Structures are given as C-alpha cells and as structure tokens.
Amino acid sequence: MAAPILVIIVVLLTQLGGGKPAAAPRPVGNAAEGGQVTYLLVGMRNGDVSGQADHPLTVFIPTATLTEIPGYGYDSAGKAMALGRVPLTEITMENLLGIEIDHTMLVPDSMMSRLVDRAGGVSVTIKTPLMAQRGANRLVPVFQPGTRRLNCATAVRFLQYVGPDEDELARFDRARAIWEGLFARYAGTEAPGLARIVAGFGSSLITDASPADVGAFFASFAGAGSDLRSYRSLPVSAVGSGEETAFRMDQQRYDGDLGALLAPSRPAGATATPVRVQILNGNGEPEIGLQVAKLLVPAGFRIADTGNAANFGFRRTRIVAYSDAGLPAARRIRALLGVGSIEIGRTPQSIVDVTVVVGADFVPAGQ
C-alpha cells in the first residue's frame, strides 16, 4: 500500500510587473490584490498536516493550463479563481489532476511580504540579469546577477517579475528560489521558528486549516533539508499562438511521473482510467453543473465537459451511458446524485463516457 500523503494547494496572488507592462489588476479570490495567480500544489509523504515531511514535493501548475472548469466550461485554470474563488479553484485542480486536495491556502502579496519580513529577508542566487523594458527599444537591469539578499519589498518584486520575452513557466524558478531562501533560514532544528512565524499570523491566514497546523506544515518542509525537497512543474506543452501563451497538460507524462507520486491522494472510488462525464444544465439553475461536480469529482469521476442542454425544461435528471460497460458508472452517479433515470445512448461519444442532463428533480446539498 502506498504511503499516505497530504496535499495543500497554495495560491500565490501577485500583480505582474518588472519586465513588461502588466494588465490592470482585478479583484481575485478572497483578496483584492493583483490579477496573476500562481499555483503551488504542495504534497508530502507520510504524516499529517502537523507531522514531519518525508521527501516533500512542490508542484508548480501554470495558471494558463487549459482545462475543464466544472460548471463553466473549458478555459485556463486561473479563471477558476475569478469565477468561483477558492472552492472552484480547488475542485478544478482536483478534476485536472485526479486527486483529493486536503487543504487550501491563499497568499496575497501582502502576506508574502510579511512572511519574508518576519524571516529577516531571504537570499537568492540570480544567474543572469533580469531586464525591464524602458521605452520602445531600451532594456535596463532590475536585478543583477549574483547572490542577493532580498527584503520583503524586493522579494515580492522578484516574484512579480516577468521578462519581456518570458511566459509563465519562467517564473517558477524564481518562486522556487524564494521558497528555498525562506526554508534555508529555518533549516534543521531552526524549523520551529518558521512554524511560530506562520502560526502567528493567526486569523489573517486565508486557509481552511488551523494556523498552528499550517505553521507546522511549512516548518516540516524547512526541517526536511534541501537535499530532500523537490520541485516539479506540471508537464505541459504550449498551444496556440499570440501574445498570451496557453498550455495543455501532457496526460501521458503526468500519469507516468507526478500522477504516480500523487497516487495515494486519488479518491477512494477512482478507477485506473477515470470515467469521463459530461454535465448539461437542463433546469436553468445557475452553477448547477458545479453542484453536480462537487459530488462526482471526489468520487473519482472526471468532468470532461459542461454546458447547457437543448432547453431548460427537463423535469427529471437523465443519466446516459453510451455502452453497457458504462452502466455501472451510471448507477454510481445516480446513487451520488440521489436522482436520475438511466438510459443507453445510441450515438457513440469519443470524449465522454456518461452524460448527465440535470433536471428540476436534482436538489443540491444544503438546499
């Protein structure tokens, strides 16, 4: 049996800047800061949120990764924060990666600045000059090469920096440098100091875990040592063209590497090949697809498509399997929803295994 792991998704909100003009910031999530969201999916083997990490792992997930946002359709992962804040972000990541996320944490620029300030600054090594555009044809250095001590303000600027010709992936090495600089300040037996700082933020932490547990979690990363900490990027490939780069996850590479590492966090009902579900709104209720996804994704189903049915006049929920082999999955879905008539669809589908047309008889939990 695989060792248990804990998964926390950390959403770092930063306003882009530095090397090229940034888009105007908009309110995002539970904070009113900056427009760019960087995801850090943090997992650890063994122990619980307050335990010691064994080979802790940080996974960077580009916000421009195209995926199904349950209830909203196919879009970049970062849009989930604007559309539905942390809860939608969480289920979007669970659906994309096929895992259960145990806790969430939102880190605005202001919180990151306070963390670095309490730590007394962080040291990073900059390999090449980081240039900013000044005027049409002039570049000037904003960060020079070498080992630099960054205070709270410059650390945030370092995280915010995007070079003139960089895409989102280029920011990950700088994020890693900041986290490593922070962990290095509290290496080994000094790790409890980081726990005290983080826990000391108390109710200002935007998380569903207790401040003490969050502090212990980050301290366990520092205490594990740099030789045991590892960093990965979600395997993606660039798609499309134009000024804004988009990415698509390489499912085969993910399954063979990160997916295997995160296997202990798969939902209990997940199958080796996830059942792909299409959710169609047949009753006109806003966000009904999201409510259905909240029941299906934790049970191991993969939401492959969401949208509207041909009309909103469906009184009863229909669950359509496209082969006899899909009937067991359809029955599981009916049990999870508590309603639904099961049918066999005669038109083969290539991207979904089961379609759910949500009717007026479906009542979301808590209503």
Results as ranks from 00 to 15, higher is better:
Val277Ile: 15
Ala209Arg: 09
Tyr39Gly: 05
Ala82Tyr: 12
Ala260Gly: 00
Pro164Gly: 08
Ala195Val: 01
Val352Leu: 09
Arg114Cys: 00
Ser233Arg: 15
Asp361Gly: 09
Gln144Glu: 12
Arg276Pro: 07
Asn283Glu: 05
Phe60Val: 02
Ser341Gln: 13
Leu169Met: 11
Gly120Glu: 00
Asp361Pro: 07
Ile206Leu: 14
Ala310Asn: 12
Ala216Trp: 02
Ala365Asn: 12
Leu337Ser: 10
Val277Trp: 05
Gly188Tyr: 04
Ala191Phe: 04
Gly284Asn: 04
Arg316Ser: 14
Ala132Pro: 01
Gly340Val: 06
Gly120Val: 01
Arg334Tyr: 05
Asp250Leu: 01
Val339Arg: 10
Gly35Asp: 11
Leu182Arg: 07
Cys152Met: 06
Met81Ser: 08
Asp117Pro: 00
Glu166Gln: 12
Pro328Gly: 03
Val11Lys: 13
Gln367His: 03
Pro27Gly: 09
Leu88Val: 07
Ala64Thr: 10
Gly366Arg: 11
Lys20His: 08
Pro129Gly: 02
Ile333His: 03
Gln36His: 10
Ile279Ser: 06
Asp75Ala: 15
Asp305Val: 09
Ser350His: 11
Gly313Ile: 00
Arg26Lys: 14
Thr306Asp: 09
Arg45Glu: 15
Arg346Val: 10
Ala175Ile: 08
Gly240His: 11
Leu327Asn: 04
Ala321Ser: 15
Ala177Leu: 10
Pro274Asn: 06
Ile206Met: 12
Gly307Leu: 05
Pro56Thr: 08
Leu159Trp: 04
Val107Asp: 03
Gly289Gln: 04
Glu90His: 01
Leu327Pro: 01
Ala329Tyr: 09
Asp305Arg: 15
Ala153Trp: 01
Asn281Glu: 10
Thr154Val: 01
Asp165Gln: 13
Ser341Val: 07
Ala272Ile: 08
His55Ile: 00
Tyr322Gly: 02
Pro145Lys: 02
Asp361Trp: 11
Gln251Gly: 11
Leu228Trp: 03
Met111Ile: 01
Phe143Met: 03
Ala246Leu: 15
Pro108Gly: 05
Pro264Cys: 05
Gly282His: 03
Val37Ala: 14
Arg316Gly: 00
Asp48Asn: 15
Asp324Ser: 13
Ile99Leu: 06
Val86Lys: 02
Val320Gly: 02
Asn137Trp: 04
Ile8Lys: 08
Gly366Gln: 08
Leu139Met: 13
His103Val: 02
Val356Arg: 03
Ala330His: 10
Asn137Gly: 01
Leu83Ser: 06
Ala155Cys: 06
